[in-house]
Design a protein around this nucleic acid. Structure first.
Length: 460
RNA sequence: UCCCCGAUAGCUCAGUCGGUAGAGCAGGUGGCUGUUAACCACCCUGUCGGCAGUUCGAGUCUGUCUCGGGGAGCCA
């Protein structure tokens, strides 16, 4: 019945009756009129509803307070006041749901830490509301980019029996009675009695399954939840997060990097074009200048360097680091930030890492020492994308697995992709929340997902 | 998991040398006002995170637990 406030604010004043539904953010009384700011979440700034105290029931107006839900009826008029073009001159107001004065959201600014304690209400704040609008827009942009570029959306399984994916600690999935676990004769847990007849866990990555569909549909992407049981307590880790993993057949690392760059730029530009009010808000109150940074990223090419060259750069500035860089070391957070913030001053793609610090499935280079891996490092965040060209040569892949002590039987179907019609292919993984963090400037990943799941935290 | 910091009114915080609790906002009352986090005056609000200890006396010192934040590791 009622239009969204985001639409109403773009309409011209007119004689027709319109309705506004939403929640009261603040109310101010004047001598003859009452101002009610109504927000319905469709945009950052709400609509000012003006109620003439001589024509609207004063008892009703007095009972309206911050947090109430209301339906207002009236005409859109040009606003006399300064901050808005139009406002609703109310002819009738219905109080739908009252809001007692112990409402946890005051008109004043709250800390994000406090808002995390009221996860069921925090979406009604400017900041979290803006984050969720941007998050939704970004999710839409992700699908648009891939759908417009010949990728198919594949849903890889959330429950997996492959306990050897190696990307992190896994959450076990079971229907066994934990008070009375069935045991085999030699005293181990008898998983044949479990729901799936074997030990299962929540997925830590859809990549391996994604590869199988890429070798059939050519270009695919996944976009779904991922679970890691790491006991890591940081502002950029979650136990449950959303990951985007494209996989392209007949594609080398060069193509992979191009897709990664085009993809990030597309999503960023889409947000800049479609979330202007929210981006202005982030740029003003959350991370000064974040909007200009995004514009800069969209307009300039990403920097490129090999791991070997990156280490040379780091060695030049060795004094600045707690952890001294050397060829073969894993890049520390401080190193990644130096490369992207000081050396490149923009996103940088680092390639060709030592095989020892990367996963078994990455394609071995001619030198026998490095693999065709690439990490996209972004200022402020560090690694935002990790990807690689996959090893498609069966003999070399088997040799790598043997080096690392991996059991071929656990990967039999993955290896068969290399046996039957193998093809060079590449892909990458993007942590969706980290991308939302990057775009919004939000410091803590727990504030860019509606209900964060982390160690000792599964409220709401 | 390791290191550092923190927990005081509904919210944001101050609290000196160990001496018995304070400001702004919110709420209430009145005033003023086409207001924009409105403004002015007055009023109300506390298991000082939990448990133990030192002390005549603990918000303050010690131990411990819980929760939160920052950093590290791991990664996306």
């Amino acid at each position: 019945m009622a239009d969204l406030i985001s639409k109403i604010k773009t309409m011209e004043p007119g004689p027709q009756t319109i309705f506004v539904e939403g929640w009261v953010r603040t109310k101010r009384d004047s001598k003859t009129v009452t101002f009610i700011e109504v927000n319905d979440g469709s945009c950052l700034k709400g609509l000012q509803v003006v109620a003439d105290r001589s024509s609207i029931d004063n008892n009703l107006l007095n009972s309206i307070s911050t947090g109430c839900s209301v339906i207002c009826e009236g005409k859109l008029v040009a606003s006399i006041g300064g901050d808005q073009k139009v406002e609703l001159s109310a002819t009738d107001i219905k109080l739908v749901g009252e809001c007692p004065d112990d409402y946890p959201l005051q008109k004043k600014r709250h800390t994000l830490e406090y808002l995390r304690e009221i996860g069921h209400l925090r979406a009604r704040t400017n900041t979290i509301g803006a984050v969720e609008r941007v998050r939704s827009t970004m999710a839409y942009a992700v699908h648009r980019f891939f759908q417009e570029n010949g990728f198919f959306y594949v849903n890889t399984p959330l429950i997996t029996a492959s306990d050897a994916e190696g990307a992190g600690q896994m959450f076990q999935v079971t229907t066994l009675d934990l008070e009375n676990v069935p045991k085999t004769e030699d005293g181990k847990v008898d998983y044949s009695k479990d729901f799936f007849g074997k030990r299962t866990s929540l997925t830590v990555s859809g990549q391996l399954e994604g590869e199988t569909y890429a070798t059939a549909l050519k270009n695919i992407y996944t976009f779904g939840p991922t679970f890691r049981a790491e006991n890591s307590n940081t502002k950029r880790h979650l136990a449950e997060f959303w990951m985007i993993e494209p996989e392209m057949s007949f594609c080398t690392l060069e193509g992979d990097m191009k897709v990664a760059e085009d993809f990030l730029k597309y999503v960023f530009k889409y947000v800049l074009d479609n979330c202007q009010e929210d981006m202005d808000f982030f740029s003003k109150f959350v991370e000064p200048g974040v909007k200009d940074t995004l514009v800069h990223v969209v307009e300039s090419p990403f920097a490129h360097m090999t791991y070997t060259d990156a280490v040379k750069e780091l060695e030049k500035a060795s004094d600045k680091f707690d952890f001294k860089p050397f060829w073969g070391c894993d890049l520390q957070t401080e190193h990644e930030r130096f490369l992207t913030e000081e050396v490149a001053k923009r996103p940088v793609i680092v390639t060709d890492y030592p095989k020892e610090i990367k996963a078994f499935y990455m394609k071995l280079n001619e030198d026998g020492k490095t693999v065709r891996a690439m990490d996209v490092l972004a200022p402020r965040l560090g690694e935002i994308i990790g990807g690689s060209e996959r090893e498609y040569r069966l003999d070399i892949l088997k040799a790598r697995m043997a080096e690392l002590g991996l059991n071929e039987k656990d990967y039999w179907w993955y290896l068969e992709l290399r046996k039957y019609g193998s093809v060079p292919h590449s892909g990458f993984g993007l942590g969706f929340e980290r991308a939302v963090q990057y775009v919004t400037g939000m410091q803590n990943i727990r504030d860019v997902i509606p209900y964060p799941r982390a160690s000792k935290q599964a409220d709401f």
